[in-house]
Design a protein around this nucleic acid. Structure first.
Lengths: 252, 252
DNA sequence: CCGCTTCCTGTGAATCGCCTGAGAAAGCGG
DNA sequence: CCGCTTTCTCAGGCGATTCACAGGAAGCGG
């Protein structure tokens, strides 16, 4: 098993102050690497394993607070792995990775204990968001962080998916929602189109990079329409969101 | 016997503030695991046993506030187990698990003492609800939590199964009732179709996921018909219930 | 001010997810 | 055993969503 330590900001901690630990189990090394990078960046400590045997060993040695588990492993059935994991770590919430077309009844019962799943191909934002939700609700994180993101007079609730600006409710589509969440989780910070594409769109997205521009445009229409703008373009660099400058409104 | 502690929100407590304890007895480990997960998520401490002998030992050592007991155990008759349990824990309420075709009048006699039963295959919502009822009525829980769920002008009584909106009584079928209860126990929270399926339908349900859509549609006809809607679709994410926005009514 | 690059956004097509009517099958009460 | 209720499948339909494309606008360096 490989263990890597966080390098970014750590918002969630365990009761003793150490970073949250996540075990990633997938047989495609490109995916475990992708996930490890993203989760480490989230401020978590990441362990990874490529099969069921490694997963059990990882659970025993690494004692993670959450597990990301691919249901398709080379050496054993996903449910079998789950059973063994549960024996080691009865409390740990599990985020399942499943193929889109996988028979849905394989999932049956899995989310019942508070676990969750995402289908491949996924976006990193989605995985991170769900993992945060699982950890938040599991009580492993000392700070039972809020599900509400706030930037200026803009709010986004990850539980209800409600978005408001200045108290007014705003309807967003799924993609718009994920994009805004990503922006709001990184306020006052320039995010490049490449970063956004990597984070918000599925890892197998093969389309034109200007979808980002398009969706920024959609967001502006809904978020900034007729108000002091919060979404800003940094030409040649990317986009960022920040609380509206009150003077900007008067200036217009 | 295996003991696992709660990790979720704990709404019911014992007089000393510690979590309620439930002993699960079933010989199918997949079922004890499923139940353990769900009950732990409910905020309870769970012990489990796979046979009558283990059940008696569990009762003695774990001192549960309630027992979930499969009537079909490998080593002894359900009634024998019950007798031994009663010797250890005279007042503890028991939730029996029985096969659908089991002789019902035998069970009926058993439940006379305030116990209850559900037939296999069951839904987790049903088990949890009945267990909550048993515990509430047994007086083990310090907070004699209400049996009435309220969201906006919608009320649902878990004891009487009465549902009203704006004072008007509404008739629901069993499935509609369980679905609404699940929604109302998680107000303002998006619940995915998978979560709903796992929680409201029996664990062996192998049908199409769009039954959820269908029943949401039924509920809307009865709950939201001609009123400001309380049940909302989050396209690509799931459903949620919340108090009707009063402005929405005027807007329509 | 010019020309180049980058970004914005209207249009439209394809797809997706959701809603719902119709009806079969199973359950239930009398 | 019969009729009513309930559960569930199937499939058509439709609006919402996603995305490509392309012309126009805006910023930037000189």
């Amino acid at each position: 098993m490989t263990i890597t330590s966080p390098r970014g900001r750590t918002e969630m901690h365990r009761p003793d102050g150490s970073p949250v630990r996540v075990l990633v189990v997938d047989d495609e090394s490109s995916l475990t690497e992708l996930l490890s990078m993203a989760l480490r960046y989230e401020g978590w400590e990441v362990g990874s394993a490529g099969d069921g045997t490694g997963a059990v060993r990882g659970a025993r040695e690494f004692r993670p607070d959450a597990v990301v588990l691919d249901m398709m492993l080379p050496d054993m059935d996903g449910l079998a792995v789950l059973g063994l994991l549960r024996r080691e770590l009865p409390h740990v919430p599990v985020l399942f990775l499943t193929a889109k077309d996988a028979v849905e009844d394989r999932i049956a019962g899995l989310t019942a204990g508070g676990d969750d799943y995402v289908t491949k191909p996924f976006s990193l934002e989605e995985v991170v968001a769900r993992l945060r939700g699982l950890i938040r609700r599991s009580g492993a994180a000392a700070v039972r962080s809020e599900s509400l993101l706030v930037v200026g007079d803009l709010t986004l609730d990850e539980d209800s998916h409600d978005v408001t600006r200045a108290g007014q409710s705003i309807h967003l589509t799924a993609t718009e929602f994920e994009l805004l969440r990503y922006l709001m989780r990184n306020p006052r910070r320039v995010l490049s189109k490449a970063q956004i594409l990597d984070r918000v769109w599925s890892y197998d997205f093969g389309g034109q990079a200007n979808v980002v521009e398009l969706y920024i445009s959609y967001l502006r229409r809904k978020i900034d329409a007729g108000r002091a703008p919060m979404i800003h373009t940094r030409r040649g660099a990317g986009y960022l969101i920040k609380p509206a400058d009150p003077a900007a409104d008067a200036r217009r």
